[in-house]
Write a protein that binds this DNA or RNA. Structure first.
Lengths: 193, 193
DNA sequence: CACTTTTTGTATCACACGGTATAAACATGC
DNA sequence: GCATGTTTATACCGTGTGATACAAAAAGTG
């Protein structure tokens, strides 16, 4: 069998992810994807099966390599308060370091009202659920170890922290300054201090 | 001069506002606008001058009739803590009462990355600035009157409250339940209790 | 050199977009 | 009734969209 390997499929998917991340599903055109992946129109359809299918693959890749990887790293610290603190410092610096100001691909997709597809919604909802779960577990362990206040409700506070994380990402795409974002992040950390 | 009055221009603008509010600038097509306003294609261009111009008029109308009106009403209460509390209860109920789950037109526009126009950005940025200002003034007055904690920084807390308000509106468009939204709102109120 | 498979370059399709133009229908003022 | 200006109903125009089709070029294997 000749030529069983193709171009580099994973780097192409990564490029496509950047495009969807930056522009969203609707605004990203096939022309954009072709240009940034560098591969040909036909090859793109042959390898990924179409725009929507490519979007799902890109979103899953982001969820795996960013959200899952980050949460796993922070949970491995085995230091809940520091983990939450790093989470917020991380999203602030991630926001600022990206001069495209793309924000978070998952959070962006929540708002892309056009992409309301059951599969996509499930990926996003699951991502939010797991981030909230990370906060809740961190608070529970922190309380058990006595370095977080006992009078806060882990469930409620976890939702609030998720809300603040989302807001930082969203406001970071708009006109908010670096110091304003850090201010919110510091306030978030204060909630469990 | 014959026929100096036309159809009802303001109710048409209101309908157009609903469309842009629900779908955003890009996703709202001229066909949508014609269908929901009930006026003719030519009349729409004649009266409002085009899609972008119509969008700006709709956004300004929303800002005037919703944001400005709400903030003015709450500030007139002359009871800062209750004003902030009502603000958050209000956005939760507003979110739930709308079965279209449109969220907040201003916040939605922050994320519509396509509409990055200087004029539109100014309207949105000004709206956010004034909401944050409302929170800051409320906290300052509340502290002066002794019914809010003295150890919180009005500037920081105001940013945090704005962040939470935005998050409630955004998450309300997605998969979050009524109780989850109310939980975040209650946590927001706790921040200044 | 064949043979097979992938990639590439175009060409094309049907459709939707925002916007413009045109002509008929219409309501008012003289 | 006639003139004036508005609304309506269409018909376009140019462009961009996602998607498909197909011939030619390229690459690895026998």
């Amino acid at each position: 069998m000749p030529w069983e390997k193709s171009f580099d499929e994973d780097v192409a998917l990564d490029k496509a992810m950047q495009v969807f991340w930056s522009k969203g599903f609707d605004s990203a055109s096939i022309a954009d994807l072709i240009e940034h992946t560098g591969i040909n129109r036909g090859s793109l359809y042959n390898a990924f099966g179409g725009k929507h299918s490519l979007f799902v693959k890109a979103l899953l890749k982001y969820d795996r390599e960013n959200r899952q990887a980050t949460l796993a790293r922070l949970e491995a610290l085995d230091d809940p308060k520091r983990a939450v603190g790093e989470f917020f410092d991380n999203i602030v610096t991630s926001t600022l370091v990206d001069n495209e100001r793309k924000g978070c691909f998952l959070f962006n997709t929540v708002l892309d009202s056009g992409t309301h597809d059951a599969q996509v919604n499930e990926i996003v909802a699951n991502g939010l659920r797991e981030i909230e779960g990370f906060f809740r577990r961190s608070i529970e362990v922190g309380q058990a170890r006595g370095d977080m206040p006992q009078d806060i409700d882990p469930e409620s506070k976890a939702k609030t922290l998720l809300a603040l994380a989302l807001a930082i990402r969203v406001l970071g795409r708009g006109p908010y300054t670096a110091t304003a974002l850090q201010t919110i992040a510091d306030e978030a950390k204060q909630l469990i201090a």
